[in-house]
Amino acid sequence: MTDEPRLSAQDMIEHLAPVLSLRVRIRAVTTLLAGAAGAVLVGTLWWSEPGPLPGRTQVAFALFTVLCLAWAAYGGWLLTRRVPLFATDRVIAAWIGLAASLATTALVTVVAVQRGTGAGLALAVGGLFAAVALALALRAHARRAALLRRMHELTGGEER
């Protein structure tokens, strides 16, 4: 027997895993900058439009600004994490992507119907994007669940 302090399995996992790998940091910075740049671009276009804009145009500008800000916030949140994420970042990104594809599909479909061009193409393309985003969300949830199950096995069910 030794008098060395014993590390729990959770402590060992945290010491083995880097806080944020270089790849994750690059992804986070890219997401933060792209979201912020998109919000600035869309906001500038919205602000600089002459005269009163139609209601659906106002909604579109607001929607795209909110989506860009969501991506920027996600990138910022990811950069501030100091603990293993166990794929939480992928789950959040997948849900933002799904929300963006559904909102964009709804907006484009409304515009297509109001213009009289029919909703078929808008729904087909939007449905494809939404289906891919949903598949990614389900895969992210499954990956997170597998990682959490593995952590639970390694820690023997101990809670921190």
Rank of each mutant, 00 (worst) to 15 (best):
L79R: 06
L79M: 05
T80M: 10
T80K: 09
T80W: 13
T80A: 11
R81I: 01
R82N: 06
R82E: 08
R82T: 09
V83C: 02
V83G: 01
L85D: 15
L85Y: 00
F86I: 01
F86S: 05
T88I: 04
D89V: 02
D89F: 01
R90T: 00
A93G: 03
A93V: 02
W95G: 03
W95Q: 13
G97D: 08
A100G: 09
A100C: 08
S101T: 14
L102S: 08
T104S: 14
T105G: 10
L107R: 08
V108K: 09
V108T: 09
T109I: 02
T109N: 04
T109S: 08
T109G: 05
V110A: 06
V110H: 11
V111N: 04
A112W: 01
V113M: 14
R115K: 12
G116V: 07
T117H: 12
T117A: 12
T117S: 13
G118K: 12
A119S: 14
A119H: 08
G120I: 06
G120S: 14
G120N: 09
L121G: 01
L121W: 14
L121D: 10
A122G: 02
L123M: 11
L123K: 07
A124I: 13
A124G: 04
G127E: 04
G127W: 06
G127Y: 09
L128C: 13
F129D: 05
F129G: 08
A130H: 03
V132C: 08
A133D: 06
A133G: 09
A133S: 15
L134W: 14
L134I: 03
L134Y: 11
A135I: 13
A135C: 12
A135R: 15
L136N: 15
L136S: 10
L136Y: 09
A137V: 01
A137Y: 01
R139K: 13
A140N: 08
A140F: 05
H141Y: 08
H141G: 09
A142P: 00
R143H: 14
R143F: 00
R144S: 07
R144W: 04
A145C: 00
A146T: 08
A146P: 01
L147T: 07
L148H: 11
L148T: 05
M151L: 15
M151N: 10
H152L: 07
H152V: 00
E153V: 07
L154N: 05
L154S: 04
T155F: 03
T155E: 03
G156S: 06
G156R: 10
G157E: 05
E158R: 14
E159S: 12
E159Y: 09
R160S: 06
